[in-house]
Design a protein around this nucleic acid. Structure first.
Ligand code: MN
Ligand code: MN
Ligand code: ZN
Ligand code: ZN
Lengths: 141, 141
DNA sequence: TTATTTATGCAACAATATTGCATAATCAAG
DNA sequence: CTTGATTATGCAATATTGTTGCATAAATAA
């Protein structure tokens, strides 16, 4: 669990203003061991925050390199905190994601790099997303 | 462009009833060189079809192994036609997808297999999705 | 042709997301 | 600490995407 100082420092280093909503959202995402949907974040930060503000906060964080989207086979967008070196200029999240079909959590496997592929001519890749689905560590007997 | 016979045969071989909506949706997906969202399919088959029927048709097709979902970094679900060997029993779509940041189309790169990764202990993967983003063949100068 | 099964369309609803605008909060300057 | 410029927030209204129940129409099998 990161200290309040850590939260403030992170906001400052990404040139973002300190606000209660931003601190709460960032805290929630840093505390979670798996990616969270907008709804799940909403639940965790309490019902007194406007959903619109939350969406705008998530967009700001994503643009600033604080969090990254986690693709899902469903139509729900999830977010997870980024590695320390991500910035507004560029994201460096080259890890695979794992979705458990039992507990439905999506984990960032930060230690597993996305392997490169050879593309057909004239296709030039800039970013990659790799999502595995199966049974996670917690749900394996 | 597949002939009407091809469409009918495909429906029959997957044990699905012949209906105008199903033929239209399948035709549209087979004709497209990239994955389509529900809205895009709706536009192509004409406004006289109910959106609810379209969603149910897409679900039926997915369950029957006629089409597969294409994950996107956005919150929109897209569909593309499956390879010939997919069935209600199992899908065999092991190819990567490529999203163009210029034209926004998502292509099935059927010739590029998804590379395997080594997972941490007690993670057991059943399915994989690999999405690249960059500039596609059509948009490369 | 008739009977059975299944797909469709409508209504109503739910969940997720976006925009404009007035107000409140943040932060930098003095 | 106070002031003023800038930016975030909250509300209202709206858009988009997807779902469920149910009566009717259509497709297939007998
Ligand atoms: Mn991640
Ligand atoms: Mn595909
Ligand atoms: Zn699990
Ligand atoms: Zn393109």
């Amino acid at each position: 669990m990161p200290s309040p100082d850590r939260i403030s420092q992170t906001l400052t280093s990404h040139e973002l203003r300190q606000t209660p909503v931003r601190r709460a959202v960032l805290q929630v995402l840093l505390d979670s061991s798996y990616a969270l949907s907008g709804h799940e974040i909403e639940e965790r930060i309490g019902a007194d925050t406007d959903r619109i503000t939350l969406y705008r906060t998530l967009k700001t964080f994503e643009d600033s390199g604080l969090i990254h989207r986690v693709v899902d086979t469903s139509d729900i967008v999830r977010y997870a905190s980024c590695s320390i070196e991500c910035s507004a200029h560029e994201h460096f999240d080259n890890h695979v994601h794992f979705k458990c079909t039992n507990c439905h959590h999506i984990y960032c496997l930060n230690q597993v790099a996305i392997p490169a592929v050879t593309l057909p001519a004239k296709f030039e890749a800039k970013t990659r997303d790799y999502l595995l689905a199966g049974v996670c560590r917690e749900c394996t007997p």
